[in-house]
Design a protein around this nucleic acid. Structure first.
Lengths: 342, 342
DNA sequence: TTGTAAGCGTTATCAT
DNA sequence: ATGATAACGCTTACAA
């Protein structure tokens, strides 16, 4: 007699008149099974509404079905896009996503993560930037025996352990676009030190200018930390320079919004007096005025692909799902760029 | 001899020269235990780096340690705030958060959720608005035997199964503020039908106007669906009315950004020609120009409290943690409100 | 205060 | 093709 709650594999076995193992075979689609038997068992399963207990499965298989998302990214939209991409990949599988934000800057960050990974014994983790750029985090995963895939703005690891976007090239193209519009005094709002994305974007910017033979005085570069406020402050510094830049590339959209803000405070019209390009294509880009020309970063696709790499390498017999490791960002042209004032 | 990987309770028991049960007692801080034994076992645990296997625990205890976050909220920042609040509550406990977005409007939404809950056998779920407002979802949880707590804009359930904000009162206060500034022609950008929050906010708005003896012509109400674009469209309709409203209350910040956008396109100065108040206090509110006066919704605190209710009701002997069920929203005054033009 | 035996619900091994 | 039995790592009786 069932004690309570959900029916178990024993109930199914008893009612169907077969052994537990046979039911298990039906569940796991074992090929060596009588057609007759399979049908009968499936009937009982359906009738009973039997659902295998994931905890018991996890115990018996000595592995669980939890994929971690480890992030310390301050941008809500970015994190949500990644979650969405991951869940797309996990949908229809037995895997679930558990989320673990990390406090960058906390001294115990690494210890916290180790604790988390050891306790939960996750099947694998997806590392979001910027924490994904931290090699000691990857090393920690390796040490603990937790598989991982890193997302980043450049190739950070072996192909089966990372997915990357080509930030450098994308920014080069964006900057080329400004140059093609006739801009020669172009400012850069750089991202924070320690962010690989910040570095790659800056390099792309510098490469484009160098290639066009345009000098980049130190005064045309201002550091930000990817926040609106830092973009505002950085823009104020750039706009104080005489002669003023006619265009600014901001290393992300949120700072670009700050740049717009700063420009407006000075009575500058965008794009007439100042052209601006951002990076990320977050919703904010389309919602500021004027709509922001920006670089679209296919983050959800990257996350989906990363998750597939994580769980794909598992299927023993299955084909090793060949997921791409490099994703291309594209320039989205909206209203924040024009030719420089005559 | 240990086969591989993590040490188990058996390893600890053997090395410490005690039984499994004694180790188990140490882990679970059982009071009936020799001080001597406890120390010895704890030493072995520390030395071995033993960590109890959560899957095995879950199986033996016939319950797991996963809390679900079920949401169909389109606002990234809101979802992130909720996740953060939940994780604060879960921090230091053995619970983890698994995230489950739902596709509102999908015909199979309820079936998907049932499937999820039945498969995963979650300890409990936190329901975010707007899906939390759906009574059949709550009923589903009850049927399945999954505990839940709903977040909402009004009392949706019994006190131990919900946390609510007082949207109606908050909007009444915000509208009073506009009235106190001298506004008489005040427009409303309402939220989508079917959202309890939209209804509560609208009611608060109407109550404030009624109390002040101000008529609310149908033309001063435009429907939106909480998106930037819908706010833009709604504002265009309101601003076409003659005489034009001198102030607009928007039922969320994102739509308010659309209103700002629309006003600017018409060459209206904010707040000189048009005052605007939003709702949510998302980052966008502080980042638009001028900074948006808005209602701050303590969503992270609500989520934290909701999660504590979920896991708090569990501790058998522990005091039934008395978490608040009602949270007060507050008006954040920034630069988007002024007296109406003379 | 501690240990023994049984059980949680599943899968793996090795029969038949 | 199917089943008996022993894991998996832990907890709860129930003894001692």
């Amino acid at each position: 007699m069932r004690k309570s709650g959900q029916p178990t594999i024993n109930d199914v076995a008893r009612i169907a008149g077969v052994s537990k193992k046979t039911v298990s075979r039906v569940i796991n689609r074992s090929p060596l099974l009588g057609e007759e038997t399979r049908r009968r068992v499936e009937e009982v399963i359906g009738g009973l509404g039997y659902i295998p207990n994931p905890q018991a499965r996890a115990l018996a298989l000595r592995r669980n079905f939890l994929i971690g998302l480890v992030h310390d990214n301050p941008n809500a939209q970015t994190v949500m896009n990644v979650q969405q991409g991951m869940l797309e990949a996990l949908h229809g599988t037995e895997f679930e996503m558990v989320v673990r934000p990390l406090d960058r800057g906390s001294a115990t960050m690494l210890e916290d993560l180790r604790h988390f990974l050891e306790r939960q014994r996750l099947f694998g983790v997806l590392l979001m930037p910027p924490v994904s750029e931290n090699d000691s985090v990857a090393q920690l995963c390796t040490d603990i025996g937790c598989r991982y895939v890193r997302m980043g703005s450049a190739a950070l690891d072996t192909s089966e352990r990372m997915v990357a976007s080509n930030d450098r090239e994308a920014v080069r193209i964006a900057t080329d676009y400004l140059i093609a519009q006739g801009h020669r005094r172009i400012g850069l709002v750089a991202g924070p030190h320690g962010f690989r994305s910040a570095r790659e974007r800056r390099l792309g910017f510098e490469e484009a200018l160098a290639q066009a033979g345009i000098a980049l005085p130190r005064s045309m570069v201002a550091d930000g930390n990817y926040t609106f406020e830092s973009g505002l402050v950085a823009a104020e510094r750039l706009l104080d320079v005489i002669p003023r830049p006619t265009a600014i590339f901001s290393s992300n959209d949120e700072m670009a919004a700050g740049v717009i803000h700063a420009a407006r405070q000075r009575g500058l019209d965008i794009p007439r007096d100042l052209s601006i390009i951002g990076f990320d294509d977050t919703p904010i880009a389309a919602h500021v005025w004027p709509p922001l020309t920006t670089v679209r970063w296919p983050i959800a696709s990257m996350a989906r692909s990363a998750a597939l790499k994580l769980i794909g390498g598992d299927d023993d017999e299955a084909e090793p799902v060949e997921e791409p490791s490099l994703f291309l960002s594209t320039l989205i042209r909206r209203g924040s760029v024009a030719s420089p004032p005559a």
